[in-house]
Amino acid sequence: MLVMAIPAFLRGPTDPTVTGPHVITSWKLGPLTINLTETVVLEWIVVAFILGLAFFLTRNLRVRGVSKRQAVAEMAVEAITNLVRDTMGRRWLWFTPYIAAVFCFSIFGSLISLFGVRAVTSDFSVLLSWAAVTFLVITWTKIRYGGIGGYLKGFADPMPVMLPINILSEVATPAAMALRHFGNIAGGGIIMMLVYYGLANASHMIGLDIAIFDVGIPAVLSLYFDLFSDFMQAFIFIMLTMVFVSNAGPAEEEASAS
């Protein structure tokens, strides 16, 4: 009788299913199917949150008598600006907002999993689109500094036989970035889900219908798999973006000389 009265969610996860994001609606555009997935809705929440935070932090900016909010905003801007300047050089300072955007998007998109929803970054398409932007910027930089001819010739470097390998490595760069981020976050999410599932099962095994072990114990693992891993992956993603993009241009000396 008692078993009946317990709401289903208190029993904890009983069936570990690993799937992609839920599709809310989809439109047909000719041959294309445009899906509006769970991920996209969470992205809207994340973007709105980040922009709201930025908007909130930059209210009533003053030259003197800095408030705590303004101090936080200035610290964040200076930190990310310094990171970009140290890693990429002065001429890439205009790139800072993109780096900051990807960093915030990645961090908050990963941390949103703490609220029990799918992490935005455990959807490979998201990471792939970010990595695609990086790839486009790399290509654009190479063409800008080397010209179309120089860019195409770069594939046959050091000898024409290397052409397929060069093309592969060119494509592998963003693919590896996306897969790394995806694997870490999604893998961490799956491990956390398995932990919840296992602890719920353990609770059931000792005769409890409520998944009592799911309270508190997973938080320890969550510290690593959610907080640390999310932060590290966001940081690594932007670091790799910066390194690859700035390496696509000519050597650092000219830029850092100014």
Binding site: V18, R180, G183, N184, G187, I190, Q233, L240
Partner: peptide, 25 residues
């Protein structure tokens, strides 16, 4: 070091992805 570790870790992550796909999907 962290960037290097991340690059080194990607091979392990590829293995993890394959393992996850094999087990769950």
């Amino acid at each position: 070091m962290f960037v290097g570790c991340a690059v080194a870790e990607s091979t392990g992550i590829y293995g993890l992805i394959i393992a996850l796909l094999l087990i769950f999907l």
